[in-house]
Every structure is written in C-alpha cells, then in structure tokens.
Design a protein around this nucleic acid. Sequence first.
DNA 1: GCTCGTTTGAAACGAACGTTTGAACTCTAT
DNA 2: ATAGAGTTCAAACGTTCGTTTCAAACGAGC
Lengths: 221, 221
Amino acid sequence: MSATTVTDTKEAILDAAEAIFAEVGFEKASIRQIVAAADVNLAAVHYHFGSKEALVEAVFTRCVGPVNAERLELLHAIESAHPAGPLPLEALLEAFLAPMIRHARAEAPRRAKMTRLYGRLVAEPSDALEHMMKRQFGGVVKRFAAAFHRAIPEVPEPELMWRIFFTVGAAAHLLLDPPGFKKVSHGMCDPADVDAALEHLVRYAAAGLRAPAATLKETRR
Amino acid sequence: MSATTVTDTKEAILDAAEAIFAEVGFEKASIRQIVAAADVNLAAVHYHFGSKEALVEAVFTRCVGPVNAERLELLHAIESAHPAGPLPLEALLEAFLAPMIRHARAEAPRRAKMTRLYGRLVAEPSDALEHMMKRQFGGVVKRFAAAFHRAIPEVPEPELMWRIFFTVGAAAHLLLDPPGFKKVSHGMCDPADVDAALEHLVRYAAAGLRAPAATLKETRR
DNA sequence: GCTCGTTTGAAACGAACGTTTGAACTCTAT
DNA sequence: ATAGAGTTCAAACGTTCGTTTCAAACGAGC
C-alpha cells in the first residue's frame, strides 16, 4: 500500500464529513452524502472508521483538539505573565473564545461553513456527542473556571459557574446562526467580521461576569 | 361527529408531539413514536395536520404563541408604568426571559421536558423552523429591541443588537441543556430552580447589555 | 333506518438510511 | 513472477422513515 493513498482517502472523508456535518448537522448528514462529496466509495467510511459514530468522533477530535490546545496555550501565557494577583478578565475571555471563533471562521475556504459545527457541538445534545464533549472540554473548562475565579474573586463560585455557562451559550449562538443574526439585525451587525464579533462578545461577557453580586435586588431602578 | 372526539385526537397528538419533540428533537422524532405515545392511529397525523412539518408548526405555534403574548403584555405594562424617560433594564429582561423560562419549566408534569423545546427552536437551524421563528418572533424582538434602546440609549444600536443576540444565546443554552450544566458545575448550580436561573441570567445579561461602549480598549487591565 | 360526510384502522408503498458482503483491484515483498 | 496484505468497488440487506390507500366504523340529519 502507498501511505499517501490511505491518507488521501481517509482525509478526504474527514474533510468532506467536516464540511457536511457543519452544513446540515451530525445526525442529518448521511454517509452517502459524505462519500459523494469526498468522491470515495460508500464502504470506505466503515472500512476506515468502523461506523458513522466513530467518524463523528474523529471529525470532532480533529476539529476541537487544536482549538483547545491553543486555548490552554494562551491561558498558560496569561498565567505566566501574571504570576501573582488577579488575572486580566478580558484577556482570559479572549483566550477562551478567540481560538474557537477564529478557527471556525478564517480558515481555508472549504471550512467557510464550519462555524456552525462548533455551535452544533454545544447545541445538539446527543448522548454520544455529550460524552465526547465531556472528554474534550472537561479539562479546559475546569482550568478556565479556576482562572476566571482568580480574575474576579469577588463573585462567588456558583454564580461564576452560571455566568460561564451563559457565556458559552452566547458564544455558541454566535457560532451557530450567523445568517439568522444578520437578518434579524437588518444588516447592522455582520457576524462574519470575526474580530468585531469577538470584541463585542468579550466586552459583553466581561461585563456580565463582573456584574455585582446577587444580594442587592434594589439595583433595579 | 362529536366535537369532543376530534378535539381529543388532535390534542392528544399535539400533546404527545410536544413532549417527544422536546425530548428528542424535531427531526429525530418519528410520527410512529408520536402516535404511539398519543395512542392514536398512524394515519391520524396526516389526516388532522397533513404532514409532519405542519404538525411541527402546530406544536410550535401552540407553544410559543402564549409565551410571546405574555412577553408583550409584560412589556406593555412596563411601558405604561414609564411613559417617559428610560425604561428599567432589569424589568425588561425579566419580561423578555421569564415567560419563556417559566413556561418551559414549571408546567404540568407532562411538560417537564419541554424545556429543551425552546432551546431547540433557537439551536436547530432548519429552514422550515427558521421561517416559523421569523414569523413568530420577528415582532417580539423588534418591540423589545426598541424598548432596550429606550432603557440604555447610551449604547449604540448595532452594539445593542449584538448584545441582545448574545442574551438570546445565553437563554437558549440555559433552556437547552440543564442536565449538562448541572454536571459541569459539579452540582453547584441547579438549572431546575427556575427563579434562581432567571435571576442569574437577568443580572448577567443586564450587566452585559450595559457594558461601556466599544471605543475604550484600555479598559482591560 | 338509511345515508352520507367525517374519522379511524390495518396494511402497504417507495425512499433513504447505516451497515455488510465478497469479489476485484493495487501495490509491496519475496 | 507470484503470493498476500491492504484497499476499493458495486451490490445488496434489513430497518425505519413519511406518506398513501382504502375499507371499516361512527354519528348527525332526513
């Protein structure tokens, strides 16, 4: 066998699957659709991956691994730059959000639609995906939760978890439905402008995370 | 024909469909599943609704109509109480979020799992659903966007749209995946506690919406 | 009591799905 | 040259899906 051949077929499937999963969702994407796009035989998926679920996991890992690695790198850089005292919240948010948003968008043209893939990872609660999510993201959120706590120690930990959760939801929504957003905003906002989106999200989330603690209800006026 | 009979079958289907859509999603739910749960014949769905898509729309409308009506009522009450000057932001957020969250949760036991239905409405970008979303929610978001603008006129309109979008994402995430959140927070946060969830979300979103405007990048420290 | 529109029932249709099979092909190592 | 592992291929399998069909059951109005 030639090593290039096996790699070619396998990666062609991965590439096509990635694009199609992003476009129509994990469950709705059919193997026949994928092999047609990859221009390989129908049985190739089962030969190389074993099952559709295994293919999903492979695509998932290939997509999300580098992103989480970059997240942790950026986090490490911030922690090294601030060995003591509070961490800069906006920088943490950017470290957490930028790799995902950037990688989802400004990639090779074939990944133009990959944006939605990340949104779907969060938004499609399937048992199989949930397991992968936990394994891939568990460590990352734990590390970042601790870092956020160092950044804003004044907000109690449960409240911090709530707010991180909300932030993930906001990010997922941003990734999931850009065309819908452009429409609903009457063209005022363009989610395809990655830097602008990231900046808006970071500012919004930073303020939300820093919100005054729970007890003062009379804040409302 | 007896009017009660037709109503019974039709509503049995609607009830069962609502529960199953919420549990497994719109696309994954099969008509056979629904008719089995409703204890009616397979053909009844097509007789009463015409197609699966029409059934989805019927369930959608029945779920979302009252919620949006309540939203607008609450909004109107706020606007009436404040004929001039800025509107209270937290009250607006509660008017926007509470009907959805409350109706999704604290309903009759059969609706225990309906929570996810709302999350799916936002998170499952299907062409058919997107159309319904626009029709059902278009007016509501427009009215609320204007009200938010009255509440915080200092944030420019495009930035406000971004932040409303993020808020919707945070709410959708909250509705979509409560068990996942309970796990990831190690039990510190219980999304089933509707009032607590709403309060946290309102505080987070209010702070995010009120965040200082874009120009000052040196806010980061 | 009979009739006719309305509703239910059991069974089937065609299409699409994930998966399996076994033969054909390709290339390396002997 | 040839054996054999690795890979591709066309075809099929069994299931499930949304939908259709058509006969049976039902109930109000004459």
